[in-house]
């Protein structure tokens, strides 16, 4: 248990590499757990970071995820290089997806990823440029209950 912490880490995510998919999020979860962060908060961060990470694996060529932590806030940011999102409003709707059949057969691409991030984050900002990439800013307050 640590009562005071200020932490900043970055992680590389490889696009289209399903064999490593999810492990950045597992890493982040372990870091938070070791710091003694409330398990409810850790679970929310894990869901949000996993969905963001999987979006890089499914759609982008690569991404960099950053975890920043202070005694009040956990922030996850992600910048990817990829096709970008044409219509963010549509992408935020539950069930909307552009995933291929192959990805969907694996149980991914059900159109729940971005809505899951939104539900678990206190702040979720998504910016995208078609043909270049997408950036995520996810903030979870350590004293919050979320929108779940």
């Amino acid at each position: 248990m640590v009562s005071h912490y200020d932490l900043s880490r970055t992680f590389e995510i490889k696009g289209r590499d399903f064999s490593k998919a999810g492990y950045v999020s597992i890493n982040i979860k372990e870091i938070l757990r070791e710091l003694g962060i409330d398990p409810v908060i850790v679970r929310r961060v894990a869901i949000a970071s996993y969905e963001a990470e999987m979006n890089v694996v499914m759609y982008a060529s690569k991404g960099e995820m950053a975890l920043k932590l202070n005694p009040k806030v956990i922030q996850i940011t992600l910048e990817d290089e990829g096709p970008g999102i044409e219509n963010i409003d549509m992408a935020m709707q539950e069930g909307y997806t552009t995933a291929t059949d192959e990805i969907r057969e694996m149980g991914f691409g059900a159109g729940m990823g971005l809505p899951n991030i939104k539900k678990n984050a206190d702040v979720f900002e998504l910016k995208s440029t078609v043909g270049k990439g997408t950036s995520y800013n996810i903030v979870i307050y350590l004293n919050s209950k979320g929108n779940v």
């Binding site: 998919a21 999810g22 597992i26 979860k29 679970r43 991914f108």
Partner: peptide
């Protein structure tokens, strides 16, 4: 309980 048997189920089990 699932019919998905590929390795990506493991990350989900660990995260949850």
């Amino acid at each position: 309980i699932t019919m998905q048997t590929h390795q990506n189920v493991l990350a989900v089990a660990k995260l949850k």
